[in-house]
């Protein structure tokens, strides 16, 4: 224990304390606290970024989901349309072919009828002239012109009725 108060120590310790405080502020806790603050800001900004990215991602996922749904619907309508078109086309083809067949049949019938008429007419003429020739040869002498004509017409009619 000192017998006197050492005022020199008092002054020295206060000066040392102040110098140490200034040096520590300049070299130790000043820069370190700056870094700590920087880090705090960095972390908070990173957290904000992450939050934003998460929200963006959610938004994108939702968009993609809607997109997929829309694509599905579109595909469905396309398939349905294709089905409808094909059905209609099939029906059309059937109808067309049916009509074509009808037409062909009709024309064929008309052809047949016409051919028949022609044949009959030709035949009638042929028969007429032939009969006239035959008759004239057979009954040249016995029959007069008028009776002869009458007879020919009768025969021709008979033949026509038979045909």
């Amino acid at each position: 224990m000192p017998e006197v108060i050492t005022w020199g120590d008092v002054v020295f310790s206060i000066v040392t304390f102040i110098i140490l405080l200034l040096l520590l502020r300049r070299f130790a806790w000043g820069p370190i606290m700056n870094v700590m603050k920087e880090r705090e800001e960095h972390i908070s900004s990173e957290i904000e970024n992450a939050e934003k990215h998460r929200k963006d991602a959610e938004k994108y996922v939702e968009e993609q989901r809607l997109e997929v749904e829309r694509a599905k619907e579109e595909a469905q309508t396309i398939i349905e349309n294709a089905k409808k078109t094909s059905e209609k086309q099939g029906e059309d083809i059937i109808n067309q072919s049916r009509a074509e067949a009808e037409r062909l049949k009709e024309s064929a019938q008309a052809d047949i009828a016409r051919e028949k008429e022609q044949a009959i007419a030709e035949l009638r003429e042929e028969v007429g002239s032939l009969s006239v020739m035959i008759a004239s040869k057979i009954i040249e002498k016995e029959l007069d012109e008028k009776e002869q004509q009458q007879l020919i017409e009768d025969y021709v009619k008979e033949a026509g009725g038979r045909l």
């Binding site: 050492t6 020199g8 020295f12 310790s13 040392t16 520590l24 130790a28 806790w29």
Partner: peptide, 25 residues
């Protein structure tokens, strides 16, 4: 008056503290 032991020891302590802070930063 001055107690030289106090002065030396206080200086040593301050130096150590400063070194801790300085080398940390």
């Amino acid at each position: 008056h001055v107690n030289l032991s106090n002065i030396i020891m206080l200086t040593v302590a301050a130096l150590i503290v400063f070194c801790i802070g300085f080398f940390s930063a």
